[in-house]
């Protein structure tokens, strides 16, 4: 299941394990294209926690991670930012990021 992150739960959810975060917004067409690919990744990799941040609702989180374009994907490993990619990513690229 894909979890929505907010400033309140962000630290807690990303604190342990591998966590993929999809920064998105409703007014962004490319984000709508990223979404089914992230869903497919989540299905294929139940060991990775998959989350979303709506940058419109959570501008502070977007600013904290310097998100300047969406979609942006970020990977956290045990609470540390381990990688990020701006723009659309395909399944293989997401898998590489989370390795």
């Amino acid at each position: 299941m894909i979890q929505d992150l907010t400033s309140e739960n962000f630290e807690e959810v990303t604190a342990s394990g591998t966590v993929l975060v999809d920064f998105w917004a409703v007014w962004c067409g490319p984000c709508k294209m990223q979404s089914p690919i992230v869903d497919a990744f989540a299905q294929k990799h139940p060991d990775v926690t998959v989350c979303k941040v709506n940058v419109d609702a959570e501008p502070a989180l977007a600013a904290q991670f310097g998100v300047m374009a969406i979609p942006t994907l970020a990977v956290f490993k045990d609470g540390e930012l381990a990688g990020r990619k701006v723009g659309l990513s395909n399944l293989e690229e997401i898998e590489d990021m989370c390795k």
């Binding site: 007014w27 962004c28 984000c31 940058v55 300047m68 374009a69 969406i70 942006t72 701006v86």
Partner: peptide, 18 residues
């Protein structure tokens, strides 16, 4: 600098530059 300040889509990324 694409995705790091350069954008091709005002409706997509505009809000991040409010």
């Amino acid at each position: 600098l694409l995705g790091r300040g350069v954008s091709y889509c005002a409706t997509c990324d505009g809000m991040l530059y409010r």
